[in-house]
């Protein structure tokens, strides 16, 4: 265990607007650490989503483009194709990637676009005020599923890591979480590995990160990480679903 701990250089000093206990902040830190450790900040371009993390460009100190809702993988494709030397990553929530942007992420992964996607799965729409997302759990109450997600009406939650790993094109698809320190350390490794594959120009990489949304789940931060562990992890199994090796 490293005895010292510092804010990574690629993370700005800006106060983060996220709600108390929201684990976006942890994921931002892991991405910033990966960028620092690979020494790629000056040639990295991030794509911000539409959602709580739209202002990720205030927190990670590299070039950014701000995508329309769900379109980040297409923008990343545009950049990576014309400037393959740039390191490109998208940072997206579950409404952004798994709902409106499903077409974009599936085809980018299938083309094997050599960028990295950080996909934050917190089972809800955060910024717009807690609506049901494709990843909302069965029976989970949201502002648009007040009686709980009725799987007979709207189907089961979508497991992106499994779905994308069924594509034949090689890639690195993994699911991690940041709800406990032990998981955070593994998530860091996976995120760094995803970026490393890109630095090698090897393949498309996506890290799905099970995350919390205390405010819209109607829980305290501590209750939220417990709920995520108890309810989400059995359904969203952690681990590597596909590796390019």
């Amino acid at each position: 265990m490293a005895k010292t701990f510092q804010k990574p250089e690629s993370l700005t000093d800006r106060y983060m607007h996220y709600c108390p206990g929201c684990t976006h902040g942890v994921i931002h830190r892991l991405v910033a650490e990966a960028i620092d450790e690979l020494g790629i900040r000056k040639r990295t371009v991030g794509i911000a989503p539409v959602g709580c993390a739209v202002m990720v460009y205030d927190y990670i100190a590299c070039d950014f483009q701000e995508a329309a809702h769900g379109r980040a993988p297409a923008m990343a494709t545009g950049i990576k194709r014309v400037r393959p030397d740039l390191i490109v990553f998208t940072y997206q929530g579950d409404g952004d990637l798994a709902s409106i942007g499903m077409g974009e992420i599936v085809h980018a992964a299938n083309r094997g676009e050599k960028f990295t996607t950080i996909f934050v799965n917190n089972a809800i729409y955060g910024m717009t005020g807690g609506q049901m997302a494709p990843t909302t759990m069965p029976g989970q109450k949201t502002t648009t599923s007040p009686m709980g997600r009725n799987v007979d009406e709207v189907g089961m939650p979508i497991r992106i890591a499994e779905l994308l790993s069924s594509l034949v094109t090689p890639g690195y698809i993994t699911r991690q979480t940041v709800i406990r320190p032990k998981y955070i350390l593994k998530a860091k490794e996976a995120i760094k590995r995803a970026f490393a594959y890109q630095v090698e120009g090897k393949c498309f990489s996506l890290v799905e990160v099970v995350s919390t949304c205390p405010t819209n789940w109607g829980m305290t931060p501590v209750e939220a990480v417990d709920w995520a562990e108890k309810t989400m992890l059995p359904y969203y199994r952690l681990g590597d679903f596909k590796t390019p090796e």
Partner: peptide
């Protein structure tokens, strides 16, 4: 660089990304 996108929606944003860099 030539790429056929999956939809005109996606293509619009490939244009945006490429132009933006």
């Amino acid at each position: 660089v030539f790429l056929q996108g999956e939809s005109e929606v996606a293509v619009g944003y490939m244009i945006f990304g490429a132009s933006g860099c």
